[in-house]
Structure formats: C-alpha cells, structure tokens
Design a protein around this nucleic acid. Structure first.
Length: 273
DNA sequence: ACGAGCGCCTGTCGGC
DNA sequence: TGCCGACAGGCGCTCG
C-alpha cells in the first residue's frame, strides 16, 4: 500500500509523535530484534545488530516511498512495498504477528517495522544518496515544475500509467494516486506519454500534486487490515469504485488492466487514445 | 524501447 | 461449511 502520502504520514508521525505516542527523535537504540532475516537487504544480520546499537535518532525524512531514519552514523532506510506501517509503542506490549524488525530504545519504547506480506525491505547504510540515486524527482518538490514533467513525458513512448508508476521517472506514485490523477486530468491510462501536449502535461502535473496533498491531508488511504490510519479512501473518485457513477459525469467507472495493475477510469471522461 | 509474465508473501473474499 | 482460485497498496527480473 504505502505510496507517498502514507509514507509521508509515517514520517510525520515518527518525527512529531501522535495521540500521546512520543516522537522518536533523540532516542537511543539499545538493541534490535530481527524477526525475519529476509527483511534486511543490507548489511548482514550480525553486522546490522552490532552497528545500530548505541546510535541515536537524529532525523526522519522521506524520499519517494522510502522512509529514512537518520542515525548518529548511519541511515536506516525502510520500504514497505505492498503492505505495512511503522509502530511506536512500549516494549512491554506483545510483539505484532507481522513485525519483521524491532528497534528497542533506551527509556522503554520500541519502533517496529510491521510488514505483513514480507515484500518490504530495510537497509542500513552510511550513504543513503547512493541507494536512492536511481529515483526520479519528488512530485511535491520545488524543482518539479510543469516543464520538467513535460520533458519526462516527451522522453519516451510509454503508456502514461506505466510511466507514472516508474519510480525512475517520478518517485512516490503508486496505483491509487495514479488512477486518481489521471481521472482528474481526463487522460486515458493507456495514452502514450509523448502524445500529450504541454497543457495536458501541466494539468496532470497539477492533479498529481493535488491528489498527493489531499492524501497527506487525510493521513493516507486505508484498506482492509493492511493499514488503518488514513481517511482518504472515502474521497477516492475512481480507485476501487468499479461500477460506481463517475463523480464528474455519472458514467459507471470501469476496471481494466494496465501495466499488470488493476486500473480504474471513467470511459466518458477519459476516452481511449 | 516497450511491455507482458512471473516471483516474492500473507490474507481476504466470492463462487461453487 | 469448506475448498479453491482470484486478487491485493510494489518492484526487479527475464524474455520476445
């Protein structure tokens, strides 16, 4: 699940705290429990456990869908893939069934990487820049302007949905926010990216930023048992609304397959190319 | 260059 | 009721 708005929500939660749960800024790691070794991409489990011990949390950041926890000497990078969240709680609480990694802080709290489907990964690296170098621009960043976006669209001849999901092109969009932004922009998901003109590109640029900001404002999108913290699912216009009337024109929303992903769109507002 | 197919996992849901 | 397949927020890999 976690796309940019959900990871941004995690980032703010860890940095600022929430509902009586404290921020983790400044806390010192006393020890760690790696509950599923497959979650650790690098380094080895033995090196990881030795290296994080004694480091303290200096900052929290986000890059695309990656959550960055800056420590005294290293950076812990988390990617959730299809499911999960971070949990901060007292070490006396029972461990969650799907916790894959737990950091135990001095003072009695812990941070858990909860990742039911085991697709997520954790990296402990000295230089996160190298790890994240392949990512495209931040869609909410200041240097991401309509012209830069138009240039990306013109640089290849892919279906627009395919391109928006490509993290090397733009970092942070996933299936939900892609469908929503394309619907607001009245662009069919199979439209070839380089056939869009500058005005269409600018509209899509605006709507990408709009839906991401809306998502962040609602603490992300909740679905089923995988993540329950957000409210944006109530405001979705097309995603998972197959058969419901399009909020713009009333035509039933259709579901097709694009880029191997379930894709929701309005056949009237978003005519095929 | 493009895009389909598949694997990685756990869990839910609908059909029979 | 229970079994079985389809499907799910992602992404890296192979292959035609």
């Amino acid at each position: 699940m976690p796309e940019l708005p959900e990871v941004e929500t995690f980032q703010r939660f860890l940095a600022q705290g929430r509902d009586g749960v404290p921020s983790i800024l400044g806390k010192t790691i006393q020890g760690a429990d790696l509950l599923w070794e497959g979650a650790l991409a690098t380094p080895s489990p033995a090196e990881f456990l030795g290296r994080v011990q004694g480091q303290s949390v200096k900052g929290i950041a986000r890059r695309g869908k990656h959550l960055l926890i800056h420590l005294s000497a290293d950076t812990l990078v988390l990617h959730f893939r299809m499911s999960g969240e971070v949990v901060v709680e007292a070490q006396t609480e029972p461990l969650g069934v799907h916790y894959r990694l737990v950091l135990n802080f001095a003072g009695g709290d812990r941070l858990a990487f909860n990742n039911p489907r085991k697709f997520g990964r954790v990296w402990l690296v000295a230089d996160p820049e190298a790890l994240l170098a392949h990512l495209g621009p931040e869609p909410l960043g200041e240097d991401f302007n309509p012209q830069a976006f138009y240039n990306i669209l013109q640089s290849c001849h892919q279906q627009i949905k395919y391109l928006l999901l490509d993290q090397k092109a733009i970092a942070g969009l996933g299936n939900i926010y892609t469908d929503e932004a394309l619907h607001l922009s009245k662009i069919h998901p199979r439209t070839k990216s380089d056939t869009l003109n500058f005005e269409q590109a600018k509209l899509l640029w605006e709507n990408i930023r709009h839906v991401l900001r809306e998502g962040i404002g609602n603490q992300g999108t909740s679905f089923d048992w995988i993540y329950k913290g957000g409210d944006y699912q109530r405001l979705l216009r097309v995603y998972k609304r197959t058969g419901d009337p399009c909020p713009t024109c009333g035509t039933p929303i259709e579901r097709i397959r694009v880029a191997q992903r379930g894709t929701h769109y309005c056949p009237t507002c978003q005519p095929p190319p």
